[in-house]
Design a protein around this nucleic acid. Structure first.
Lengths: 148, 148
DNA sequence: ATGGTTGCAAACACTTTGCACATGA
DNA sequence: TCATGTGCAAAGTGTTTGCAACCAT
């Protein structure tokens, strides 16, 4: 196993949550920080392969579940029959998912917090978090007319 | 195979979208209409078993995919590693998912349409639909104090 | 009658688990 | 050193597919 980029502070981040800084974990953190977009286990595995970090899917999932437990990442689903993961310590944001090319964009504006207060008042339901995703056709795909 | 309740108009609904009205399909429609809440394939299978309609999971999924294609139902995901399904012809609404007891409530108010216009203007992204789900603790579970 | 539907079995994709070996602190 | 992590293989879910038999129209 080789380490991708020893210059990062991923090691410290991991130690902070009492996780040993192994090459695979550092590389996963690295990818999550670089892309800043939701990735799935296969994409992570590919990233590790590319950097000659010899892993198998089980380890990837174990790393992801460990990160989840420690609150480093969030698990999300875009109705694909699998999970995606992204860093947890990001500002409140949501996604634009292009149904033509699959591209995922972030949007940050969100006026849901008032709705949450309403829900507490009217339903007595305490919201801990929410998911809001928009599906449609992105700008590029509209131009390319490769949508129906 | 026995039919659950021949009094329904499910048969007509199915014929309208050019699907043959088989006992299994009628029973699935029936359940979706009765619960009006998102159910998964296992719950549907259980419902069929209970009514002595002898099916297997493959058929349930084939029925659901057929209903999806015809636009009768919607597929949604609550980050459970599986899909749930609910009738499509319902007013715009979202869900409150209790992380303690798993209960799912509907809420209908939704001020997202303005946000969608904004997204079109700022990002050039055309939204076809969105998903918005709230996770938290429901009223009952707060009372029962079986949450942390 | 006949084409759409189903049951069964097998396969598939994604994720988890058990256990022996390897490794970071 | 030694608890924590990993590789490998196997199993567990959820879902799809091929094919012959079946049944709604």
């Amino acid at each position: 196993m080789k380490r991708i980029n020893p210059s990062h502070n991923c090691k410290d981040e991991l130690n902070e949550v009492e996780l040993r800084a192994t090459p695979a974990r550092i590389a996963v953190m690295d990818l999550l920080e670089k892309t800043n977009l939701p990735v799935d286990a296969t994409m992570i595995k590919d990233h590790l392969d590319k950097h000659h970090i010899d892993t198998d899917p089980a380890t990837v999932f174990r790393i992801l579940n460990m990160f989840l437990e420690k609150g480093l990442i969030k698990q999300i689903s875009f109705n694909e029959g699998k999970f995606r993961y992204e860093l947890a310590n990001r500002e409140d944001h949501h996604h634009l998912i292009c149904q033509t090319c699959g591209k995922i964009e972030d949007i940050s504006e969100c006026a849901i917090s008032e709705l949450e207060k309403d829900i507490k008042k009217k339903k007595g339901f305490i919201v801990s978090h929410h998911t809001l995703e928009f599906y449609g056709v992105c700008h590029d795909c509209q131009k390319n007319q490769n949508y129906i």
